[in-house]
Design a binder for these strands. Structure first.
Length: 423
DNA sequence: TCTGGGGTCCTAGGACCC
DNA sequence: TCTGGGGTCCTAGGACCC
């Protein structure tokens, strides 16, 4: 039986979240910035139209911002995460088969809904999501995930589609792909696009008709899968159960450059703590920890980046053990006399707490006093909305903490930040 | 002055083993 | 003097995604 995928993608998701709670900016150009108020990571159509690029550093857009009264927001990921959950909850009512692909995208299997009319059904989904969450979405429907992505882009770029485009018929697929630049295809990034164009393939249709042998020889098996998907042969299936995580990372650029080991240590250890909280929330243990530091790559000053890692044995989710390891690693890579711009902590070799192996000489984490201590700390911090009990090594001042000058309120997750309506 | 963060997967190359 | 080949495992780095 032929498969049918719908890709639902929230339009300018972060901007749309801000607009739900701040309708005054509905018709205006709006952008949301990355952490540290660095780059533009979400743009309204109005902002796109006046030429603000995706990922553009905001300081380079200052003139445009001023000239067009662009509304600027700092990222508010607590709010976006909560809005995302609401959208996904609505979507789950429309299919038994939902794959949450990212914070603002989901694949729905529409197999078995043909009798309702795929186009009509997609329009209904779009209408209900908008009504129940305030978030506008675009929907692409096609026989493979990769084609559903293409259909989704088409819906976004063509207002006459009203946000829904179905791409099921072969003749139509061929026409649309011949109008699609090869670099717009899901899985074809900058490098591959340049390579393909150099070899005479400028459109998705040309890639689709390339010989398998040639693709296998010059590119990877992953790209071959993409080519098959463009031909309508489904190679990527629905992944409804979230696969276990392979890595948990906390990385940040600083609000200002750090040039003292003590401060660097505080930052690294604070990120270890954050990572460890994420680790425990997902009931995992880490078997490896990696720390990296980096100076500002955009400056003329000497560039330095280095990382070091070590195996954690036995695997653990106990913050003090991870902190100890991270401290040693940092000492190995820290060079005096440099001005550091960012650092990060990455936990890997993750395994579920329930699969913890037995040790001859060590106590298991599961059920130990350390385990209970972490649970008490986490649950207290959760109830009090974050960070009241922390490991002393993290430091209290956090002067390097990121800049966030324009953050909106966390309307949906904090009682003290509820939306106020004045009449 | 001011340039994000968190992931996955693949490949190449080195260490090591027999 | 002559100096293989196959396999595994690990790490670093790159490409890609949102």
């Amino acid at each position: 039986m032929n498969k049918i995928f719908a890709l639902v993608d929230c339009n300018s998701f972060y901007v749309s979240c801000e607009r739900v709670f701040n309708p005054a900016v509905n018709q205006k150009p709006v952008v949301v910035l990355s952490n540290n108020d660095g780059c533009v990571i979400s743009r309204s159509n109005e902002a796109k139209r006046i030429g603000i690029g995706m990922g553009a550093p905001i300081f380079k857009c200052r003139d445009l911002v001023k000239a067009h009264d662009v509304q600027v927001f700092s990222a508010n990921f607590v709010l976006y995460g909560d809005m995302s959950n609401r959208v996904m909850a609505v979507l789950s009512g429309f299919t038994p088969n939902l794959e949450i692909y990212s914070i603002d995208e989901a694949f729905l299997s529409l197999q078995g809904f043909e009798h309702l009319g795929l186009e009509d059904y997609a329009r209904e989904i779009r209408k209900v999501v908008k009504r129940q969450t305030g978030i506008p979405v675009s929907i692409g429907v096609a026989p493979t995930k990769t084609l559903a992505k293409v259909a989704n882009h088409y819906a976004k770029d063509h207002p006459e589609t009203n946000g829904v485009f179905t791409l099921m018929r072969e003749e139509e697929i061929e026409i649309i792909l011949s109008q699609t630049a090869v670099g717009e295809v899901w899985g074809i990034g900058k490098e591959k696009a340049i390579f393909l164009e150099r070899n005479g393939m400028k459109t998705a249709s040309e890639l689709r008709n390339a010989p398998d042998e040639w693709i296998k020889k010059h590119l990877t098996i992953v790209t071959l899968r993409t080519v098959w998907e463009l031909r309508g042969i489904s190679c990527l299936s629905m992944e409804e159960v979230q696969p276990n995580k392979k890595a948990i990372a906390t990385t940040r650029t600083f609000g200002y450059e750090v040039s003292r080991l003590v401060e660097m240590e505080e930052a690294v250890l604070a990120y270890v703590s954050r990572s460890a909280v994420k680790l425990r929330r997902q009931k995992l243990l880490a078997g490896h920890i990696q720390v990296y530091v980096e100076t500002n790559p955009f400056k003329d000053t000497p560039y330095y980046r280095n990382s070091a890692g070590t195996i954690i044995s036995p695997s653990t989710a106990y913050s003090p053990h991870l902190i100890e390891a991270a401290k040693r690693l940092l000492k190995r890579i820290y060079r005096e006399g440099l001005r550091y711009k960012s650092c990060g902590v990455i936990l890997t070799n993750l395994c579920p707490q329930t699969n913890e192996q037995d040790y001859l000489f060590e106590e298991k984490y599961q059920g130990s006093a350390r385990h209970r201590l972490m649970e008490v700390m986490d649950s207290y911090n959760r109830q009090t909305n974050g960070g009241k009990i922390l490991i002393a090594a993290e430091g209290l001042g956090k002067p390097w903490f990121m800049k966030q000058a324009h953050r909106s309120k966390r309307f949906t997750t904090r009682w003290d930040e509820l939306l106020e309506v004045r009449i």
